[in-house]
């Protein structure tokens, strides 16, 4: 993927990410209502009146967690933004995560959940983290230089901080079965059921996994240049449609590296339910 240049990447993501979400928005949204615990904890731990952003908010399911903070949520998808706009007292707007319409250095917090893995080159993923970091209030912690010349930072609890979530390569117990050593750039199917004949409501209301995706391990090993197979049906019923979304699956340590390349410091990170996550702050200006 590293050979892909910027404008090719934009066209690619347009077809294999943005267009797909626009098509599957309403069905996708009906399966997205249960906040992930780490995200919930992060948002509930914010002081009352904190102001932040939700970059790539999707249907806005995290806007329901804490009504005492103000969140400016944004997404590329017009259809998903419309759904997200219903959550008060927050705001929702259409924006690209590499060109966010916010003043730099002004926010207490940011979340970008299951978003950065949709960018199709390493440079664009680092850029996406950078544009989240730039919005945060700068890290005011004093730099401490140790005798050996290394610099350590101890962030203050009032520093702006961001929570980033990406899909993990290491998920051998998930029904997709990806694991260490497998291809990281994959096309993941999404099967929508049309209202004709079948109900479009979620089958498993408690499931946090993407229940409507069919496992396709051949794709995960295959080339990312696989063509979008919009409209191709995987089941005998003609009431379903399959869409393929591009993902970059993160391997252990890769998110931390991207954060560091973007000029941030990880203050807490971990693995939860097939995802890598990190709470990050901006490095102090040199």
């Amino acid at each position: 993927m590293s050979s892909r240049d910027g404008s090719t990447a934009v066209t690619y993501e347009d077809e294999h990410v943005h267009h797909v979400y626009e098509q599957i928005a309403s069905h996708f949204s009906s399966t997205r209502y249960k906040p992930w615990p780490i995200v919930e904890r992060f948002l509930q731990g914010l002081p009352d009146g904190a102001v932040g952003v939700d970059v790539g908010c999707g249907n806005g399911k995290y806007l329901t967690v804490n009504p005492k903070v103000f969140i400016l949520a944004s997404d590329r998808s017009q259809a998903l933004t419309k759904i997200a706009a219903q959550h008060q007292p927050h705001a929702a707007l259409i924006a690209d995560n590499l060109s966010l319409p916010h003043p730099p250095s002004s926010f207490d917090f940011a979340i970008s959940i299951a978003v950065i893995h949709h960018l199709s080159t390493p440079a664009r993923r680092v850029e996406a983290i950078k544009s989240v970091l730039e919005l945060l209030k700068p890290n005011r912690a004093l730099k401490q230089e140790s005798p050996n010349g290394s610099v350590s930072q101890s962030p203050d609890s009032s520093d702006g901080r961001a929570l980033i979530y990406v899909w993990a390569l290491e998920q051998k117990n998930s029904r997709r079965g990806w694991d260490e050593g497998m291809a990281q750039d994959v096309m993941v199917p999404w099967v929508t059921k049309s209202s004709r004949g079948t109900s479009s409501k979620p089958l498993k209301r408690n499931s946090a996994v993407e229940h409507s995706e069919t496992r396709q391990s051949d794709l995960s090993k295959g080339s990312v240049t696989a063509q979008s197979r919009k409209g191709e049906s995987l089941t005998p019923s003609d009431s379903s449609q399959t869409f393929y979304r591009y993902y970059h699956l993160y391997r252990a340590g890769e998110l931390e590296q991207d954060v560091s390349d973007a000029g941030g410091t990880v203050i807490e990170s971990g693995y939860e339910k097939d995802n890598w996550w990190a709470i990050i702050v901006r490095n102090s200006e040199p």
Binding site: L72, L100, P104, S106
Partner: peptide
Amino acid sequence: MKVLTVNFLTCAVKTCKTS
């Protein structure tokens, strides 16, 4: 869009953000 929202918005063009 709320009036409150505009207080946290600026131009999305990179060269405008510091203006």
